[in-house]
Design a protein around this nucleic acid. Structure first.
Length: 356
DNA sequence: TATCCGTGGGC
DNA sequence: TGCCCAAGGAT
């Protein structure tokens, strides 16, 4: 494997001490996390923030983390909460299966009498994959787990000049990361690697002149830092089309609850015509009944773009013309509390502007 | 292994 | 504006 050869060839530069010295001296990129030397952080807060941070920026997570920890200060509070309220509180953060797994995980941890303290046992909990289990084990319990996220992948690919493209290079990167993970302060080391990737060893225009690991970086020495890690090209993103329905009665609008699995699973929503299962060209024919068009809602998802035609109607009985779904009339004055995913929040905003 | 799953910021 | 990307996990 490439990593073992590269590892042996790497400089004798003391990577972990240099990185930890840098970490001790610079500001944390997670405002809510305690500085080095503080008492061990609450596993609940570490777990919650790490789940929120999956594929999500620190800036986006901050307000959600504050709201969640204020409303549910302990994991027992979260485990006892109504799942629908947690889903609504998660609205806007994306990847909603995380919220469902959050509830399941909280209840399992309470059933166990507390968080498992090892990476292997944490890995068994719902929503904890290789990264999150290692991160919680290292940060909350001090285990010398090998923590690899996208930041670490980038830093290590550059440090060891691993030129094979992702995702194929992952095993080599993981092995290389293991060789530089220290037996103590593994949590600080992991957070330092991620802070370094977020602020210095960035995707574009890395600030190599400011890097505490510059003397050990093979990619910098070769002048190829910005080109790493290489990635396999991604597929083009298709566009799907459909309709979304706004049915109003006495100051309330009809909401449904989406199926637990699939797009926006388990979330409160406006009824739609099944765009989630359709390809291009659907949703363009006439609709029976007293509907009028309220414009188009455009929204980009990870693997497709969506164009929804907003259909407005104030005949409440038209609810029965839609596919049978669990639903409710929701007061418009409480729209902000509905917990709608962004695409439906956009549709609601458009509907209210068209209505007036 | 490849695909599905949200959203907002940066350039 | 369009594209890339992010403290990934489940299947």
């Amino acid at each position: 494997m490439q990593a073992s050869a590269e590892t042996k060839a790497s400089p004798s530069f003391a990577i972990a001490p240099a990185l930890l010295a840098w970490y001790d001296a610079h500001a944390r990129s997670l405002p809510w996390r305690a500085p080095p030397g503080a008492p061990p952080p609450d596993p609940y807060r570490v777990w919650l923030s790490e789940v929120m941070l999956q594929q999500t920026t620190v800036a986006a997570v901050g307000p959600y983390f504050e709201r969640f920890t204020r409303r549910w200060p302990t994991i027992a509070d979260l485990a006892a909460a109504d799942e629908a309220e947690i889903m609504a509180a998660w609205a806007g953060l994306g990847y909603y299966s995380r919220a469902r797994n959050l509830v399941a995980c909280a209840r399992e941890v309470v059933r166990l009498g507390g968080f498992p303290s090892t990476e292997a046992d944490l890995r068994k909990l719902p929503g904890l994959g290789a990264y999150t289990a290692a991160a919680v084990a290292a940060i909350a319990f001090g285990e010398a787990a090998v923590v690899v996220d996208a930041n670490v992948e980038r830093v290590v690919a550059r440090l060891f000049a691993i030129t094979d493209p992702l995702p194929g290079a992952r095993p080599a990167i993981r092995e290389a990361t293991a060789t530089i993970t220290p037996p103590v302060r593994a949590g600080d080391f992991a957070q330092a690697m991620m802070d370094l990737g977020a602020t210095v060893c960035t995707v574009r225009s890395p600030r190599c002149l400011l890097c505490p690991l510059r003397g050990a970086c093979r990619a910098e020495a070769a002048g190829i830092a910005e080109a790493l890690p290489a990635k396999t090209p991604k597929k083009p993103k298709p566009t799907r089309k459909g309709r979304v329905f706004w049915i109003e009665r006495e100051g309330a609008v009809w909401f449904v609850r989406r199926e637990a699995k699939g797009m926006l699973g388990g979330m409160r929503a406006l009824p739609d015509d099944g765009w989630h299962a359709r390809a291009d060209g659907h949703g363009e024919g006439p609709v029976a009944g007293p509907w009028r068009s309220g414009g188009v809602v455009r929204h980009g998802f990870t693997h497709f773009d969506l164009e929804l035609q907003l259909m407005l109607c104030d005949a409440a009985e038209m609810v029965h013309q839609l596919p049978p779904e669990e639903g409710e009339f929701w007061p418009l004055v409480r729209l902000d509390e509905a917990g709608l995913p962004t695409v439906f929040a956009k549709a609601a905003r458009l509907a209210l502007s068209e209505r007036s």
